[in-house]
Amino acid sequence: MNPFLDIQGIYKKFGKDSILTDVNLHLKKNTVLSLLGSSGSGKTTLLKIIAGLETQDKGEILLYGKNINRQKPQQRNIVYLYQEALLFPHLDAFENVAFGLRLKKLKESVIKEKVDLMLKNLGMTNHASKMPSQLSGGQRQRISFGRAMVIEPELLLLDEPFGALDSSTRGKMQELFKSLAHAMQISALFVTHDLKEAIVMGDQIGKIKKGELLQYETKKDFFNDEHSEVHKEIDFWTNIKNN
C-alpha cells in the first residue's frame, strides 16, 4: 500500500551550499512524524519544498501516490505553520480563523458554524473579537492552529511552532495539539530541535542532519540508535540523580 505522503530523493542547493541531499521520507495517514534537527540542518527548506514555497533541484513529492511537484502551494491543501503565529494583524481572532474558509467562498452560516466550533475546541470562544495584539503568545498560537485546521488540510507542516513559548504554555500547547490532531485525524510533520518534544509529539521520529534525513520506523528504533542522542540525555539525568 502506498504511503499517504512519499518523498523520494529530494536534493536542494542554494548557490554552492548543499542544503538537502537525497532526502527520502514517508508518512502514513493520520499520523504525526516528528523531525528532529538543529539550526541550519535543512528542515525548514524541506517543509517549504513540501508546501510548494520552494522548489527542489531534484526528487519527487507524492501525495496519495500522485506527483504534486508542479502544483502551486494553493492547490496542494498543505498548510505550513511558522514558529511565529503570524496572525493577520488587521483581522480579529474570529476572522483569522475564518480566513481560509472565506477564500473558499463558503456560505456565511457554514463559516460561522465551523469557526465557532473551532474556537470552542481551542478554548478561545471568549476571545473571538480580540485583535491579535490583544492576545498572549499562547493564544495567538492557538488561533494560528485553528486557522490552519479549520480548512481541513491534507497535511499540516509545523516548523517549531512552540519554539517562542515559555515551558508551561509549551506543555499546554503540546497537549492541545495532540488532542486536536487525534480528534480531527490530522497528518502532520512536526519539526523541532527539542528531543523530548519530538518524542511526545510524534507517532514516528526522523532526524535531519546536514541535509540528510534518517527516518526511524518505530520509536524503539530511535531509542536504540546510539546516534539519536537519547542515551546522552538519559546519561545526563542519571548523573544529576547520582550526584
Binding site: A51, L53, K72, Q74, Y80, L86, F88, L103, I151
Partner: peptide, 13 residues
C-alpha cells in the same frame, strides 16, 4: 513575506 506565503498555503490565490 511569511504572511504572504501563509496565505498561499491556506488556499489564497
Amino acid at each position: 513575506k511569511s504572511i504572504e506565503e501563509l496565505s498561499y498555503t491556506l488556499g489564497g490565490t
